[in-house]
Design a protein around this nucleic acid. Sequence first.
DNA 1: ATCCTCCCCTAC
DNA 2: TAAGGTAGGGGAGGAT
Length: 1145
Amino acid sequence: MSYDSSRSSANTSRKSKRGLDNSNSSNNKNSKQKTLGMAWGANSLSSSRSSFRNSPFSNFGSYMAEKNRKLQHQFEAEASTSSHSGSSPGKLIFQGVYIFIDGFTIPSNQELRAYMLKYGGRFANYFSRHQVTHIICSNLPDSKIKNLRAFSRGLPVVKPAWILDSIAANKLLSWIPYQLNQLANNQPKLSAFFTLKSNPVLENVLTDEVCQVNLDPFLKGGTTKDACISKVDEPIRFAEQAGELPDDPNHQFEELNTSSGKSSEVKMAEFGSRDAEDGNSVNSKHQSGPGLFSASASGCCLHNQSSDGSLSSEPGGPSNRHHSTLGDPNFVENYFKSSRLHFIGTWRSRYRKRFPSSSSELKCRSSDLNTSANSDKSTIIHVDMDCFFVSVVIRNHPELHDKPVAVCHSDNPKGTAEISSANYPARNYGVKAGIFVRDAKALCPQLVIFPYNFKAYEEVADQFYSILHKHCHKVQAISCDEAFLDITEKDMGDPELLASTIRKEIFNTTRCTASAGIAGNMLMARLATGRAKPNGQCYIPSVSVDEYLYKLPIKALPGIGHVLEEKLKKQNVWTCGQLRLISKESLQKDFGLKTGEMLWNYSRGVDNRLVGNIKESKTIGAEVNWGVRFKDLQDSQCFLLNLCKEVSFRLQGCGVQGRTFTLKIKKRRKDADEPAKYMGCGDCENLSHSMTVSIATDDVEVLQRITKQLFGSFCLDVKDIRGVGLQVSKLENADPSKQAPERNSLRSWLTSTTTEKACRINSMDKERARIDSEVKNLIGTSGQLFPDHTGFSAQVDSNSSSDISAPPPLSHLDMGVVKGLPAELFSELNEIYGGKLTDFIAKSSVASENIYSYPSTHSAEGQELAVDGGEGPLASDMIPLDFIMVENRAKQHMIEEEQVAPSWAGLQSEAICSVSPNNNDLMPLSLSQVDVSVLQQLPEELRGDILGQLPAHRKQELTSNAGSHLSENPEGALNIKITENKSNSTASVLNSNLWSGSPPQWVDKFTVSSCLILKTLAELYCTLGSTGSLSPILQRIISECLYPLDENSDACGEEATYDLCELFKQYVKLKMELDLEEIYVCFCLLKRLTTKSKLFLQVYNIVFPYLQASIGENYGGVKRRAINQLPCYPNLGFTVKTNPKGSQR
DNA sequence: ATCCTCCCCTAC
DNA sequence: TAAGGTAGGGGAGGAT
Ligand SMILES: Nc1ccn([C@H]2C[C@H](O)[C@@H](COP(=O)(O)OP(=O)(O)OP(=O)(O)O)O2)c(=O)n1
Ligand SMILES: [Mg+2]
Ligand SMILES: [Mg+2]
């Protein structure tokens, strides 16, 4: 209906859990801090985005958390004493209000604090998004306004007068008239300070209509000692009722069902009455957190107010013109902040952190094989909140419980906003999730629309799961409002009793009802819940399964969506009973092996899934398919960057890095009409293109480069783009020590702990670097200890000259290694660092904890400068990723030494790291670099591993042709020469006085060749290029690099570019036997060497993406593919074979 | 057979 | 105005 055509949805229900989940910030409310500013980002770590780095809001380290806690404690102590005196109920004006004061205020900070304390409110010493309900702010310089916008995010920013006036009025006034004007229109209005104080009329109106206390129901319930809570343990009646149920399942269903309609009100009467009581006691307060405005009982939605009010209150006041990527540079961030689907989509990731590794989920059932015998004995409970989003927002509106209510962004009766959830009265009118609000209003004109309150959903979900975990240790979370419990091995009696106990507790705690299904497997439990809704429960015993399913519409089976439903209906299958008549073979023929079997099983009530067998997540991604409109390439690139940032955040938040990157594009179909939905994507082609690299990364820069290339390969008119997504797969744990050990594998070797700590320059390293920078200034440069380091740097990277003579920054030392040094070496080292080493070790352990909890790439920028002092962002931007990749790989080889001689490894690798600290992780295992002589000296098992990674032709070369491999081409020959040429220089490297014992023989050459090879290769290439030993095309390219043509020269034009590309193409064709990696490396090097040649860059830009794409890990067939995919540039006269992916479909 | 890429389908 | 995301399962078809 609201669909335009092809839509993607998703199949579900799997849980994933990545064991590592760092420091579980489980109990840490601050962990809710958002990521890229996404309120509900998958990554719950605090962001220290540079934009508000200096604001108190960015500090969420453990120190702040602890300090905050203490101060709050102190405050509460005070409050408990003093508020006793004034504990007259009428005085609790600010109950549920939790303010944070930003900056200077007219009544002082202390005064306001005292007021809050006196009148029942709470006062935050430091901003905590999780608790604070209002930000109090008088007037701020413009520079601060921007930051305020960024972090306030939906929270009301209110002037202190609101507090004073509320006290004067002896009741909580609406804060809306007291909103900080600056935030809305960016223009400070001092007069606004006092305006409303003398406007009682307006005040009353607003107060009545839109009230706002953020009433935390639990706080309230707790403090007022809610009478209902004491009734909690009285499920007996409940249980009896359940126990009395007849055996006939249908009958049961009837009864339970009707009970939900009618008698359930009896059944749940306590709930209802409690609600009423509570409603009375709280009566005049309306709810609502930031941004919630109450809908009046009349059913009229006050959405307009909200829009100037708060909820989604976007910072950009005037920028509301276009709600698309065109008008808003922060579109991604803002969009996710308000997206319900984003909220529920990312919920699981937050859940993992809040309920970390609930031991339960990790493979509990040893009774492994799940034959049907198993399921006979199993007992599964499925619990699902009733109309979750609605229930939560009308918790304190008992008068609305029997009126049709829905949650939606908009109340516009002509609007295309989607209904998120509708309560059961509304469903009677046909209102349901997913339909447009205009259709909902047409079906039910009196429908009351409430806005979202994501914060409340999150809190209720937390409570929901706390209760579940309390009652059962095998909990499989399905979504924020839904879970399976496996109570098979629970000896505690009646499952139905347990279910009712749980439901009751949920209601008493959240004031929202849940329904439950009980059965022998997950499928049947889920179906039972459907029967039980709303506010009921249902048990389906095994014997009743067949009967229950017989008449069940196929669509009710999980896994059958509208497409399968339609296909089956075409076969005249409408019910599960009819579905059973089709043979498994036939189903498998029509729908595939697995799907067919699923249909066959499900139609018989068979489901072998186990509760809680959680797998670690396999992909992480972000996409936006709403409001995406680009006018030019720059728009799209900007958007892509933001998307990369987002994805990078999420990767880091999950503690993983990925190797495969998939860019998804929604492209407006040629004949597509305007989307039915406002700013929707309409009818689109879905295109995707992926690239796999050899080393996992989470670095935003790397992501950006990859994404750029992927994007380029689509060859699209950006104006047709209606949606963009970036997905990362082949995930690996970012902390290799927690990675599943792969014995003796090359990969585990390359990414071993020491490698990680010492060499990988990823977000964590960058953060470390930042921390280190503060110590860095104190360190002298008595670099005697690192003579080799110096020389090494000079050779490897001529660009970073400034820091050459300094010892490696402390942060780059592997403290694990340092600590393990012999005493005398340690003190020597400590001296070099001015005695800071000891301190730093202590410090770094603290710091790394913080980093662990709150990694942040966004603070990376200045840090690189601090570390290497040489290459700023500009330079680093010009370094091709690929060069870096290779260089980095060299480092990893280096690391290998550490395993052999750990005592010097850390320092050794330090030297390397400091050479180009802003390296990226990404690099191909560019096998052309595997030097034969080195290879031969490797330990047997490693050699085997390496060979195992090589493409066949390469393997042969290396094994059979040891000495003179590659000699058939100039590049290969160079490879060997380099090793020889540079072996002298290693001597010094290896002579470090930090050495203890002699390194294994092979370390020498291996290190040299891998660390220096690129630089040297580049030099030699250039030399040979000018002396004519290279092929014409490479020669020409190289000379262009060395002696770049004037930018304005004719020779830089299209024609020249074409010539060069064509030549290159021919070259590749002619030199089929030449490894693509060779060319690839060559290109990387050349790009590195020349940033001035426009001509070269043009060629590079055309050819390189294809090289890059081909260099992934798919060696097989790569050459041919790469050549075929050389692009078509119509104006250059290329003939294209087919353009990559997308367009050919 | 088994993997990979590019999709589609599905549940929340 | 409105905020159509996220992730797993799996099928088709190609490469090896
Ligand atoms: N298309 C959808 C489906 C769900 N949701 C959100 C709102 C729901 O409240 C919540 C939970 O989804 P459920 O499928 O559990 O639906 P409800 O809880 O709303 O209703 P029910 O009583 O059927 O469970 O997810 C949504 O925004 N859009
Ligand atoms: Mg629900
Ligand atoms: Mg649900």
